[in-house]
Design a protein around this nucleic acid. Structure first.
Lengths: 193, 193
DNA sequence: AATTGTTTAAACCGATCGGTATAGACTAAC
DNA sequence: GTTAGTCTATACCGATCGGTTTAAACAATT
């Protein structure tokens, strides 16, 4: 019998994610992925299939471990105002804390894949739809408790918060300094007052 | 003496812009540009230089003819509320009217060029900075006339409006339907009330 | 030691990349 | 008609693209 795998598939996936996240799909070459993951060509193709397969795996990993995990944590607070506040402060903090200014992998992907790849588009759309749902629930619950102004239509407010998040993430990627991002985040929080 | 140029340089530039706008810089191949512009390889290189030169020319053209021209027109209204209202309604209208969902060339570029190309980054940053300046002036003048709520800090409000624009443009590119974009635009207009 | 299947490195594939060069065909001014 | 310069089409360049294959090195089981 052969030996067991000598490299950690999850670690390699994490490294590959960083490459795609930073450079995008098109600009990330196989050579970049090999260098980034540390494994060689053969192992990479054997473990993850082609470039697109690997990309989808990293995108799924990001969505699960970053977006879903975070939203679940905030939802567990059972405190809509706190949840929204921490969300936007956290986004700004993450955005400026990253020296590479990679932004949000999902948002980046939403712009890079226009209409070509329907599967990827659907995946990103689902992520943003669930984010919108999170915002809507926050608003609804907060209004029921009288903590959020009742004049805000939950659906409209949720969509606006999504747009603001996308704005922060895109501006944070290259253009836009810390004060800008924080100003937008503050205004997002003020939206519910 | 030779004859004058047989193709219209401005028209070719317009076509090339459509290609870059739709596919982005990396994904647009020389073959795409040749097909899009209608001219052949030699003429293209002779008239515009390499791929990056051509890209910068199209980006400059877009910025001048679309962003600058529109803002100047709105500024000439001398009616801040009207200007902001028309701006966001116009953005939504343009976004959904384009069957290719190309979004905004400047915004798209801001995400595709992370840190690699400093010149491009600066160009995009300048465009968004001037947009922010337009918003700020609208708010300031509107406040001086008592048409916009005085509690809104002009600088913060302007940055937020920029973020909302970016959000609309990015969401409108693939994810996000018309109702979403209009909801965000309406909320942007409500920000100044 | 023989076997088995995974590791690695590297050669290799056709295709495409951005960019250049060449060779005529063409239209103007001389 | 000669000449100058721009058009078109196409061949060509080296490099890189994503992806496959090959073969040797290797470790664990038998």
């Amino acid at each position: 019998m052969p030996w067991e795998k000598s490299f950690d598939e999850e670690t390699a996936l994490e490294k590959a994610m960083q490459v795609f996240w930073d450079k995008g799909y098109e600009s990330a070459s196989i050579a970049d992925l090999i260098e980034g993951t540390g494994l060689n060509r053969g192992s990479l193709y054997n473990a993850f299939g082609g470039k697109r397969d690997l990309f989808l795996k990293t995108l799924t990993k990001y969505d699960r471990e970053t977006r879903q995990a975070w939203l679940a944590e905030l939802e567990a607070l059972d405190d809509p105002r706190q949840a929204l506040s921490r969300f936007f402060d956290g986004v700004v903090e993450q955005t400026i804390a990253d020296p590479d200014h990679k932004g949000c992998f999902l948002v980046n992907t939403s712009l890079e894949f226009p209409a070509h790849d329907e599967e990827v588009r659907q995946f990103v759309a689902k992520g943003l739809r669930e984010l919108e749902g999170f915002f809507r629930r926050c608003i609804e619950v907060g209004q029921a408790r009288g903590e959020i102004r009742a004049t805000l239509e939950p659906q409209v407010g949720a969509k606006t918060l999504v747009a603001l998040l996308v704005g922060i993430r895109v501006l944070g990627r290259g253009v836009g300094d810390e004060s800008t991002l924080q100003a937008v985040a503050d205004e997002a929080k003020r939206l519910i007052d």
